[in-house]
Write a protein that binds this DNA or RNA. Structure first.
Lengths: 332, 332
DNA sequence: TCAGGCTTCTAGATCGTTCTAGTGAACTGA
DNA sequence: TCAGTTCACTAGAACGATCTAGAAGCCTGA
């Protein structure tokens, strides 16, 4: 039943209402300069015809698109939360969001090109993988905000979470519970793995404790493998690279007959939906995705509308203590 | 350092290359009708100026946008897999994808409007929540394909998975392992909950078994609550509404001292990433998201390019047996 | 030599809006 | 009464591309 008739234009509405195109334009975008009576007449005619303004033509004329391009990775459930928050914040600021997914078969650069083609006035890239130079090239066309990654050079804005502070809190939390034998299962080559690793080393040494680090990764499997290798030198607490790794660690500990948190405490990172699962209740470091997203949108809009130059915003994460951390066993 | 200079247009390139705008247009879109030498000259000039065609202007003129609008829900990790597959299929067919997220604060209708504003030639909606009438209204403007839901009326296309067949397979699998006391923990008011529920009832009765159904839901918590209520009449197998619910069920059973699958088998639905987690290895019914996505894109493109009328495609799911289903205990 | 047919290129209209610069009428206040 | 102001409205250019129709140049063959 699809009616393939040409969709109505301003011109059609103008004719139907017996006014000029310009006046219809004024009415349609709610601009001042039309009498209430005519306004109604025009609106009625528009509704009657099922008129829908052609955004391409509209945007072509009025250079502003009020569009923010946001790239995210479909592989990270965590990114979905950011998208949510970004929609809310963008909407509040009167901007629309153009989403671009990065998948295994669709490199970041392709996604960015698509976002620019849609007419994005600024780009927000979640954990961009491009080099600083490549990012700078895009940043010369349009403001670019890197989210969750801050080593992006000076041409690109960034909004990130303070990994050092996060790990410091994690260690502080565990030490204050009485733990001293703490192991960090790291993120391998994942983004943010390096700063968390060195933050752990620095903070443990500062406290005169031994910074034991085991190679891990970002997925459950990595946490499990690493957890299995704890074996003989079982610590009383583990700080995982992220929540998913932490889940793997917990599963591995369970299989080894260790109770969490009675025998071993496990702390995640990200405070993702996995951490919040009612049967998991994972203690975790929260980067507060909604706030980060809002900050990124803020930054992008400020860059579009003002003449501010690129800057780097760093937010402090916070600890969410749930049920996987507790005091170490008496003999520990 | 963002250079706020006006971005170059066809006109600029034409002047730089010493030719007409029309010729630059020809070269830029790779159309025939330009000599190789001039073609190079134009391309060089374009590269020199950093020219990037303005898609708004281009699309305004050439009605075709080659754009498919895809709406998904940020709350369902499952949807991300569909997005992935849709990107691949659309790309192969020469189409670009415009993504629209549906969140708690952003109703489906708003997302659809945005997708249409981008110039989508067709809409693919994952599990749309709008009424058939509302869908039909959009379908009168542009082809609409409903994905994962098929009761959408005749104006809208649909691509879905056969829930009856899926549940039939689930029961068949468990029965062939020797189970007879099978419980279905349903999806409450979730999409697809009803067909799965009645399919379970019908299939069990067909086999002369009692169709025990317990109220559940789509999340881990629901599965846990339902699992806890199994108590005294412990079955030997459970078919959960979906994987997340199944995870809750498993956790609940574990807490009650039941081993999975030695004492109780648990079967999920969706074959999501949760099911595939190495420490879960959940047996599940797979709807094969990539195939469904590809079919939906196919359908949308066929509708755009051909004159086919709306149709409903139903695909048969299949069983993925992992480690949570096995023969019932000897005494069972 | 010249009609006919390529190939290569161009002028100008066009897409559906918004924007600029106005027009004309009604209303003010001295 | 009349200059000044406000209000409602309009004509036509503009945005940056594509498309149509046609021109110019060159080759071909009779």
């Amino acid at each position: 039943m699809t009616e393939q008739q040409r969709r109505p234009t301003l011109m059609d509405v103008a004719e139907a209402a017996g006014v000029s195109r310009a006046l219809v334009s004024i009415v349609m975008r709610g601009a001042p300069g039309a009498a209430e009576a005519t306004r109604q007449k025009v609106l009625d005619a528009a509704r009657e015809l099922g008129y829908r303004p052609d955004s391409r033509a509209r945007l072509l004329r009025s250079t502003r698109t009020k569009l923010l391009g946001l790239s995210f990775s479909t592989a990270h459930a965590f990114h979905a939360e950011i998208v949510d928050a970004a929609y809310a914040e963008a909407g509040a600021k009167g901007y629309e969001l153009a989403l671009g997914g990065v998948t295994s078969g669709r490199p970041e650069a392709r996604t960015i090109e698509a976002l620019l083609d849609f007419g994005s006035e600024a780009l927000i890239l979640i954990s961009p993988t491009l080099s600083s130079d490549e990012l700078a090239r895009y940043a010369s066309q349009v403001p670019v905000v890197s989210l969750l990654r801050n080593d992006v050079g000076d041409a690109t804005d960034s909004v990130s979470s303070d990994d050092y502070a996060g790990i410091r809190m994690a260690v502080e939390h565990l030490v204050s519970l009485g733990h001293r034998r703490i192991v960090h299962i790291d993120g391998g080559s994942a983004v943010s793995a390096e700063p968390r690793r060195s933050a752990f080393r620095a903070e443990m040494e500062r406290r005169g404790l031994e910074p034991a680090i085991i190679a891990g990764g970002a997925m459950e499997e990595d946490g499990m493998t690493a957890g299995n290798s704890l074996g003989p030198v079982m610590p009383t607490a583990v700080i995982a690279f992220n929540d998913r790794s932490a889940l793997g660690v917990i599963e591995s500990l369970r299989a080894q007959g260790q109770r969490v948190p009675a025998d071993v405490s496990v702390l995640g990172y990200d405070d993702s939906q996995f951490a919040r699962l009612s049967y998991v209740q994972l203690s975790s470091i929260s980067q507060d995705a909604p706030q980060l997203a809002a900050a990124a949108v803020d930054r992008a809009v400020a860059r579009i509308e003002g003449t501010q130059s690129a800057g780097h915003v760093v937010r402090t994460p916070h600890l969410v203590a749930r049920r996987t951390t507790a005091a170490p066993p008496a003999g520990g």
